[in-house]
Design a protein around this nucleic acid. Structure first.
Lengths: 355, 355
DNA sequence: TCGCCTTGTGACAACGTTGTCAGGTCCGGT
DNA sequence: ACCGGACCTGACAACGTTGTCACAAGGCGA
């Protein structure tokens, strides 16, 4: 509430001390040309003499001019923002992180930046973030959904927002997706254990509501059922969220009375880690078989090395990028469902026979 | 080149099949109010009757209206874009990925999205990406530089772009930074090996031009020098970029004639992994001591478990976020250099005595 | 009845940029 | 001397939004 009637000049003195950025107007004034000519120089458009061009460039450099893409995009007819959004489960997890990296590599080839976010299986966060990214007019969306149904996306898909689902297929809407065959991968893993003579096989899995977790559990049940294992010999522990959960669950199984399981199948990489920790501390690492779903760095360096169902992450990421940028380029073919077959990687822990 | 003189209506039939998005104008027309009133409703501003408010909201819903933050930011006086950029070494690496995640968590608390990019130690990419992100008017920058000097940033810093360096301090410009004391951490690691009686200790490090690699090498030299180890007994292998490089280097060391090293100090987590692989395949894993710089998931599950110099990544990320958002909020204090002390985590591999 | 205040609403300009179009200058050809 | 065209350059409107200000309608006290 200063009593000075002379207002501070608009470019300075505001509460945040940032100086106002130079605009084309400023560059035009300094170089003695029109704004439009500055625009032409900045965008490397023809029709400007070399002399003027240099004068404008010097003025721009002197004023630290930086092109404002938002204003530019606003004016340009149907311009892209050069940004896509990637909504993954947890970008610090090796699976999401690798996926993000391979998507980034594809995006860079299209001069596009990637907005990355973690959903932590929180449906509300997913909806809020999608809304925020749409408001930012991202050119495309890559989604590893935390919601069980994605009807809320219908309007955006109708509006033509290029969207690719990854790791989990869409429900309630139709869109491209790249997933692995979780039921198959899981069935192969369990069949592999059965082939080695195991009958009491534990499966560790995440929240049943999570699509991949459900599918992997189904694969276990399919394989066990096909082998004629009685329900009483099936051991399912669900709703495990963290490695610690898995570790506790496995310890609990070996502390109770009755016949102990001879093999463990972990439905996600970090659950496998928890299981390995538990077996190791129980002194059972070399006596109980273990197979994990999802490979991870160093799985081959464990003792015994961990047998896993591997998803080719680089392939998934590249495929997602390919689909997304095809859509962004205008591809209007019906949605595609790409399903990648996981492979069983034998390393030792899965080839232990029941004692 | 259709001969139909009737032009297609502007909202449809364009080459990219996306329908034009509804704007406030459309919502205004449908609900029979002015654009400004729509703006008021969308922004939850007072001064609109409940009746009109509902009418506008219905129209917006019917048209799938989505607020355009770019246009909004353009008009608003000194608005934020709600985006920050994180330029890291490689976002699929567990260190960068964890850092990104903890930064994301801070950013989410400020309703801010994170643009993530990998630099792969390419200076040109760093400069190009910074330019692109500045053009997008990000509210702040977090940089793990690939360039050796950052003078190119001077204009942006002058213009008040909040910037925090992480893992590596700035050169040629002054800005906030959060780093660990690499020389100290490295010295501690080597002193630890010396204390266990080792004298022939190999150090594996990355390109000498990389600041952290240089610092870690210096720590090795300091410790070796202080212990009076003759230069002939120092074994330095530099310019190792990948785990495979490290693995090859270690194998080569044990295939040559002369006294073999009794301990390995790896200057980065993936080089440690390569070293472990080599020692394992040589059958030396339990006879040669190994210490790594940077902890990583599962380092404790190796056999022997790997002794490492740990950087508290969550703490670093949180500190970076704190500094950055303080700057964004207008903090103009002189640049701060936060240095975090790494800790040596003893797990077994580093406590093996020379045979 | 008058004046004044409150409440709700809209017209208009502006943010920084680019598409459109209308010049102006200079050249060579007749 | 005149004209046509190539080449540069700038005025203006528009993109979708919000800040400013003006105004209309209604209520209330004098």
């Amino acid at each position: 509430m200063s009593s000075d009637p002379e207002a501070v000049p608009p470019t300075g003195g505001a509460a945040p001390p940032t100086v106002a950025r130079a605009t084309m107007k400023d560059v035009a004034a300094l170089s003695g040309v029109s704004i439009k000519t500055v625009s032409r120089v900045v965008n490397d458009e023809p029709g400007v003499s070399q002399q003027v061009r240099e004068r404008v460039n010097r003025a721009a450099a002197r004023l630290d001019y930086s092109h404002n893409v938002h204003a530019s995009n606003l004016r340009r007819t149907s311009a892209r923002t050069g940004m896509i959004a990637a909504l993954f489960q947890d970008i610090s997890n090796s699976f999401s992180a690798s996926l993000l990296r391979s998507l980034e590599d594809v995006a860079r080839g299209h001069s596009t930046a990637v907005l990355a976010a973690s959903l932590d299986e929180e449906p509300d966060r997913e909806r809020a973030l999608v809304k925020a990214f749409v408001a930012r007019r991202v050119d495309g969306l890559v989604l590893m959904p935390a919601t069980s149904r994605q009807e809320y996306l219908a309007a955006e898909l109708r509006a033509g927002l290029p969207t690719v689902f990854v790791d989990r297929v869409p429900h309630g809407v139709d869109a491209d997706s790249v997933t692995v065959d979780n039921v198959l991968g899981s069935r192969h893993a369990v069949e592999h254990l059965l082939a080695h003579g195991h009958r009491r096989i534990v499966v560790l899995s995440d929240l049943a509501a999570i699509q991949t977790a459900g599918d992997r559990l189904r694969g276990y049940r399919d394989a066990m059922g096909a082998a004629g294992i009685p329900a009483a010999d099936r051991l399912e522990v669900s709703d495990l969220r963290t490695p610690e959960d898995a570790e506790r669950a496995v310890r609990a199984l070996y502390h109770r009375s009755g016949p102990a399981p001879t093999a463990v199948f972990a439905g996600r990489n970090d659950l496998a880690v928890g299981a390995v920790r538990a077996l190791r501390s129980l002194g059972l690492a070399h006596r109980v078989a273990a197979v994990g779903f999802d490979d991870f760095p160093l799985a081959d360096l464990l003792d015994p090395a961990l047998t896993v169902v591997r998803q080719n992450v680089a392939q998934i990421g590249a495929e997602v990028g390919r689909l997304l940028f095809a859509r962004i380029a205008g591809d209007t073919a019906p949605p595609r469902r790409v399903i990648i077959e996981p492979t069983l990687v034998l390393r030792g822990s899965g080839e232990i026979s029941p004692s």
